[in-house]
Nucleic acid binder design. Sequence first.
DNA 1: GTGAAAGCGCTAACAA
DNA 2: TTGTTAGCGCTTTCAC
Lengths: 345, 345
Amino acid sequence: MAKPKRGVPKKVRVPTIQDVARLAKVAPATVSNVLNDSRPVAAIRKERVLAAVQALGYRPNALAASLRRKETRTIGIVVPDLTNPFFGALVHRIEELAAESDYQILLVSSNEDPKQEAARIRTLLDRRIDGLIVAPARDEVEAVSHPIGALPPTVLVDRGFGLAGFDTIAADNVEAGHRGCQHLLELGHRDIALIAMDPKLANFADRIAGYRKALAEAGAGRRARVVTGGLDVESCRTAIERELRRPDRPTAIFAASYVATLGAIKAIRAVGLDLPGDVSLLGIDDADWMEALHPYISAVAQPVEQMATEAWRLLNQRLAGGTAKSARIRLPCTLHVRESTRAVR
Amino acid sequence: MAKPKRGVPKKVRVPTIQDVARLAKVAPATVSNVLNDSRPVAAIRKERVLAAVQALGYRPNALAASLRRKETRTIGIVVPDLTNPFFGALVHRIEELAAESDYQILLVSSNEDPKQEAARIRTLLDRRIDGLIVAPARDEVEAVSHPIGALPPTVLVDRGFGLAGFDTIAADNVEAGHRGCQHLLELGHRDIALIAMDPKLANFADRIAGYRKALAEAGAGRRARVVTGGLDVESCRTAIERELRRPDRPTAIFAASYVATLGAIKAIRAVGLDLPGDVSLLGIDDADWMEALHPYISAVAQPVEQMATEAWRLLNQRLAGGTAKSARIRLPCTLHVRESTRAVR
DNA sequence: GTGAAAGCGCTAACAA
DNA sequence: TTGTTAGCGCTTTCAC
């Protein structure tokens, strides 16, 4: 048995700005000024400082600087579920942009739960993040900010569009629902079931509205069929399966999210129908695999990259002190017609 | 035009521990002791403190506490690519576990680039993270730690297995390659091409070794065909397509990663072969969609959840002062036989 | 152009 | 049990 000496911290003292100053025979302030270009420093001293920094392997303690400067160059990101490729891509891109501007990312997941979301955001605030990007679990203001109090500059992505006091970004979900449904109608479908994870979430409500609008325009307003799935693939699958087993089963499924799309494919399989022979499928949200296996899945793609870019741009503006009134940005989706949608027989 | 007053910080002063102390008529230290249970405090005072905290909406400044305590309760996570579902799931689970223990996650992506990796890790260190979990871009020690200097407790996941000074965790990649190849051999395949993104990465080297071993055991050692793809789907697709267009094309493809699997599917389509009629496909790494569209993709699944759990467990142990010698943990993979692998004609 | 000194908000050591 | 003091490592006055 090795006898583990517990809690013995390494004795290697990390050099501080004082150590550098001493070695370079200058004031700590001068070291700071050299390293941050915050004031002109004579060339001779500057060299001495740089040499000392080199010699000691000095790295400024960002914590101390943040405490003093009252700015952490850290932003929080909150997403409902990181395993969802939409949010994965979103975070990926934001992290990339943030890093370019020398910002770090504190990442938390809310697991689609407003309670957890609030709790996690609070811990982020305790760390004095400079800004926050959140894809909220719910759309209500209370859920996002009420239990938390003052927030730093915050931009809301995907959900919570239009909430007062926030810059908000979302896909044009009404148009996504409208355009998607139109596509199905053009193919001759009249019995189109739309599957939403939670029709109360604004983005689903919008997609449903667009869908209804397209239906109405085609004189098929009474044929709307909105099915509520749930937050996970299984519950969506079950709901869709039930719909497909009805005698008057739909000829097309419009799955209003990534999770719903996955559920729809599984449901169609489970019922033993042919895709797209017996039933067409149109998804919302794109993924790499949708163009791999046949039938390629037709989908209305949200502009994730753009959403990330805009989110970062808006946040950056605020971080720079911008006080423009809250932005509300709707980004257009793109319909990718592939193989899973086919003319009705 | 609104006239934007730039850079005007909000005048709302955030309450400090001093404010609470004053209001509660106690010493700041007492407030600290109440909030952290660090010393017994008389019930009367405790109540006064709590009331004052409530009244002011006081939240301790974690930055200041960290500076003083020399511990941030923050750990860094470094992954090569967050859009890869494997790393997405890994981060997701680690974040979850960390949050349960009141740790935060600073997330950075290395984009498969050791240079970027080193740079990003350095910025994490400047923030005095307590620990680090990294899925390195390369396997060499130098790449991970040499250009950086002293690291906090660090565990390496997926790559860099066995590097001295680190707890390391990886799937049993040799076995994964072995078992996978065996499965193909059992189906009668003899011309099996293995596609690796980069055969120099240890996990690919291991998978290749396992594959060769299985081949040798079947007396087909000379028939090994290792194809180098690349870091992205397209380059893998191209490489596999080339292989499939040869007159002596393989009857089975063994794609040694998620990206390679996607590339393989696309290549098989591009060449116009039937999957699995003309060619079988076995992937490494599992994904939700592999059980959605036909043919369901057979795959050797890495135990992502377990890898995350173990990573967190090991790190936690170190954070608690544990000084056991570096752990090396190999976790077994699971073969999911589905529809994309079929007996050779 | 430079240095000395104060202080960001907290906790740990020392007294009482 | 409580308060006072010092100081974590840095940046920013202010004075020279």
